[in-house]
Design a protein around this nucleic acid. Structure first.
Lengths: 156, 156
DNA sequence: AAACCCTTCACCCGAAAGTATGATTTGCAT
DNA sequence: ATGCAAATCATACTTTCGGGTGAAGGGTTT
C-alpha cells in the first residue's frame, strides 16, 4: 500500500460532506413532496444509519486493505529472470561438478543423508563434499554456503 | 483459524438494532423536552451519520482484523528485482514479527547462537522460534525453511 | 476474571552436521 | 608411467540442530 493517506483523507472528507448534503437535500425534497408524514423519524434514522454504516465499513476496509488475507494463493515460484550459472566463478573457486551437485541439493533443503541417497553414494562422501564446499565458499555452515553461492550467482 | 461467522453476525445485528432503538428513543425524548425545534433535521442527520460511520469503521476494522472477509489480490509480481514481502502469507502462516526476524537472520547463514547474540536473547529462545517456524513453514531443517520462505515470497 | 497469543527461557535427549585424517580407485594429462 | 585431481568411503570426535515439554510474564480479547 503505497499512497498518501493524508491526501486521501482530505478527499474522503469532501466526499463525506457532499454525500451528507445531497442526502439532506433529497430527504427534504421527498419530505415535502411525496412521502411526507407517512414515514416516521425512525425510518429516516434507520435509513441514514444503514447507509452510513455501509460507508463506515467501506472506509474501514479501505484503510486496512493491506490486512486482508488471501485464502489460496500459491505462488508459482520463479517468474524471475532466467538464472544463468556463472561457471567462471565455479572454476575460479575450484568447485567440482560433484560438489556443485551437492550444493544444489543442499540449497533445496535436503539433508546430507537425503543427498547421499539421491546421488547413490555414502553419507560420508557427502560430508566430505560439503566440507570442501564450505572451505571453497568460505562458509561455516550450509546456510551460509547457500547464501554465499547465491551472491556469487552459482545458485538461482 | 476459522470460526463461526454466522454466530457473530447474529450478535452484531442484535446490537445494531438495539443501538438504533436506544438512539431513536433518546432523540424522541430530547425532541419533546429540551432542545425541541432549535435543532434542525440536518443536525440530527449529521449526528446519526457520524455515529454510524464510526460504528461502520469499527465494524470494518473488526471484520478485517478477524480475517472473516477475504479478498484475493493475486499480484502479478512485476519483473523488477525489488523484493516485496508478502505480508498476507506471513499472517496466513501465523508467523510473528520475532519469528520473521529470526527467519531473516537464519537465511543470511547465521547459527542459532549468532542470532541469539544479535537479538540479545538466549539460545533457547531462538531454538523455540526456529522450531515454531519449521512447523509453520512445514519444514524439517533450516535450509528447507529458507527455501520454503523464498518460494512463498517471504524472503528475497 | 478468564482465555489466548507472543516472547522469553530452561532442560533433556537424540539426530544431524561439521572437522580431521587417512585410504582407495579412476581418469586424464604430462 | 607417473603425477595429480576428483570421487569415493571410513573412523572418530565435537558442535550444532531439532523435538518435546513446561513455564513465567506481558498484552490483548472476550
Amino acid at each position: 500500500m503505497q499512497f498518501s493517506i493524508l491526501a486521501n483523507v482530505k478527499r474522503i472528507i469532501i466526499w463525506y460532506g457532499l454525500a451528507l448534503a445531497i442526502l439532506v437535500f433529497l430527504l427534504k425534497f421527498l419530505e415535502y413532496r411525496y412521502i411526507v408524514r407517512d414515514l416516521s423519524l425512525e425510518f429516516y434514522l434507520g435509513v441514514i444509519a444503514v447507509l452510513f454504516t455501509t460507508v463506515g465499513i467501506w472506509l474501514g476496509l479501505k484503510l486496512t486493505r493491506k490486512k486482508v488475507i488471501t485464502i489460496s494463493a500459491p505462488q508459482p515460484s520463479p517468474p524471475d529472470t532466467i538464472f544463468q550459472l556463472d561457471e567462471q566463478i565455479l572454476q575460479q573457486k575450484g568447485i567440482s561438478k560433484r560438489e556443485y551437485k551437492v550444493l544444489e541439493l543442499m540449497a533445496k533443503g535436503h539433508s546430507n543423508q537425503e543427498i547421499a541417497d539421491k546421488l547413490f553414494v555414502s553419507l560420508n562422501t557427502i560430508k566430505t563434499h560439503t566440507s570442501n564446499l564450505f572451505i571453497k565458499l568460505e562458509a561455516k555452515r550450509r546456510t551460509q554456503a547457500i547464501e554465499r553461492a547465491k551472491q556469487l550467482r552459482l545458485l538461482p
